[in-house]
Every structure is written in structure tokens, then in C-alpha cells.
């Protein structure tokens, strides 16, 4: 193991330990699981003699109207074809993702600004090992959460005679890889800027922009939005985690597993590329703005 990687692992361990001592990680987990619980209970209450009836539960009526209005009935049918768990996994992943990536962006930028990283850099570590530590921490904590989420959902499935569905695990894996890619973008955002606030704005801006583009290409509402979004897609799809997420799921749908795993590989490579870019940036700009 290289010295830089060893340093990154050691710092990551400390960061993970810190996260376990702080309430944020637990609260994000609890919020995610609570959302799962609400969605699963709502789904169970929305079942009648012919299947899922969105009108039976106010939450599902809202979800049904919102999603079918924005993305069409086919989108809704596909999302709930195997049961609630695909949708639940996305929704319950959001709080932990927001907590981890935002805290990374903010903490790293802040530590960079106040000179904490510079202080470390006088020792055996450099800026790259510091941001790598954040990246490793985010990944490890995400894995912890996902494992707990799977256990929770299995329990929920057993108690309600539901089934996780054949695509559930694959979906979760894609979500994890997408998160990896987003974490690397969060690091790039924090090395590109000089303060926590500007890093946060940049990161949120990137995420929102990519989200709007992907949602625009899925929308059924306006042809103008769709065509504008498709033009934008051509330009930015190649580094959009959401695009690869959609692509992997479409390959999964047709059973092309080779292409599915290839997309995961591409996501990993892209994540590595963002980290390499961050490395180059921090090398040029230094660890103190």
C-alpha cells in the first residue's frame, strides 16, 4: 500500500469514528428508515382486490399523481411493478446521501480554509490523502447504512408478505455506484472552491443541474423542456451519475447483465477520474486557499 493510501485509510478510520460519535449520521439513518416505514405501510394499505390502488392512501394518491403527472403512467407502473422496494430504496437513500456528501463538502472546505489540512500536510499526509479519506469514509458509511436498510426491508417484506423483487438488489448496487460518483463530484467541488459555502453552492448547483437534465428527459409534460433537455443531455450525460444510473437500469430491464456491469465499471472509472482531477487541482492550488 502506498504511503498516501495508508495515510488516507488512517484518516478515514478517524473520520468514521468521529461520524459514529456525532448525532448526524444516526439521525440521517433514522429519517431514511422512517421514510421507508411510512412508504411501506402506505403501500400495504393501498392494496385492494386488483392490486395497487393509489386512491386508497393519501400519501400514495399524492405520489401517484405527482409521478404519473410528471413522468407518465408507464414510469409509475415500472417503479412499482415489483412492489414498493425500488421506490423505497431511492427515497430512504436520500437523507444519508445528503448528510454524507454535504458534510464532506462542508468539512473539507472548512478544514482547508482554516488551515487544518495544511497543518496535516506538514506531516506525512498531503491534500489528496485527506480528500481520499473523506471519500473512503463516505463509502464505508454508505455501505453500513445500505446493509442496515436491506435488513430492515427484508424484515418489512417478511412481516407484510411482500417480496424485495429480482431487480431490487441490482437497483441498490447501481444506487451505491451512483453515490460513489456523486461523492467524488462533491470532493471536486470542495477542492475547486475556497470556502465551505461556495463549495456547497457549487455542489448543490451541479447536482440540481444534473437532476433537472435527467428529469427533463423523462418528463412527459412539455416537448420544449424535453427537447432542450435532450440537447443538454448530449453535452453533459457523459459525466452525469444519473445518466449512468438510468442506463444501467435500462440494461437490467432487458437482461443485458454484461452491459449492466460495464456501466458499473464506467461509473467507477469516472469516479476515479474525478478524484484524479481533484488531485491535480489540489496539487496546483495547494491545500490552503
Amino acid at each position: 500500500m502506498s504511503l498516501r493510501l495508508r495515510a488516507a485509510v488512517v484518516i478515514a478510520k478517524r473520520r468514521i469514528f468521529e461520524s459514529f460519535l456525532n448525532p448526524g449520521y444516526y439521525i440521517a439513518q433514522a429519517v431514511g428508515l422512517l421514510l421507508s416505514y411510512i412508504l411501506i405501510s402506505g403501500f400495504v394499505s393501498s392494496i385492494d382486490s386488483s392490486g395497487l390502488n393509489y386512491m386508497l392512501h393519501p400519501l400514495y394518491e399524492f405520489i401517484g399523481r405527482l409521478l404519473s403527472g410528471a413522468f407518465g403512467i408507464t414510469f409509475l407502473e415500472k417503479l412499482f411493478a415489483e412492489g414498493p422496494f425500488q421506490f423505497v430504496s431511492y427515497v430512504s437513500f436520500v437523507p444519508i446521501f445528503i448528510y454524507l456528501s454535504f458534510s464532506t463538502v462542508f468539512r473539507f472546505s472548512l478544514e482547508k480554509k482554516v488551515g487544518a489540512i495544511e497543518l496535516l500536510a506538514y506531516g506525512p499526509v498531503d491534500g489528496t490523502s485527506c480528500f481520499l479519506a473523506f471519500y473512503i469514509k463516505d463509502i464505508i458509511l454508505t455501505i453500513f447504512y445500505l446493509l442496515f436498510l436491506i435488513l430492515f426491508l427484508i424484515m418489512a417484506a417478511l412481516l407484510n408478505n411482500l417480496v424485495l423483487g429480482p431487480a431490487f438488489l441490482y437497483t441498490l448496487v447501481v444506487t451505491f455506484f451512483m453515490a460513489m460518483l456523486l461523492y467524488s463530484i462533491s470532493i471536486l467541488a470542495s477542492v475547486l472552491t475556497d470556502s465551505g459555502a461556495s463549495a456547497m453552492v457549487l455542489y448543490i448547483g451541479i447536482i440540481l443541474f444534473l437532476l433537472i437534465v435527467i428529469m427533463g428527459s423523462f418528463t412527459i409534460g412539455s416537448a420544449y423542456v424535453r427537447s432542450f433537455s435532450s440537447v443538454l443531455s448530449w453535452l453533459i450525460n457523459w459525466f452525469s451519475p444519473f445518466f449512468y444510473w438510468g442506463l444501467a437500469l435500462s440494461f437490467l430491464e432487458v437482461g443485458n447483465m454484461l452491459a449492466y456491469f460495464l456501466i458499473l465499471l464506467v461509473m467507477m472509472v469516472l469516479s476515479g477520474l474525478f478524484l484524479f482531477l481533484s488531485h491535480q487541482v489540489i496539487k496546483i492550488r495547494g491545500v490552503r486557499p
Binding site: F71, G72, T74, F75, K78, S217, F218, I220, G221, R226, S230, G246, S250, E253
Partner: peptide
């Protein structure tokens, strides 16, 4: 209306 990104 229909979804351009989905197959049905």
C-alpha cells in the same frame, strides 16, 4: 403524452 425515455 408519453415518456420518451421509457419502453412499454
Amino acid at each position: 403524452k408519453g415518456n420518451p425515455s421509457l419502453m412499454n
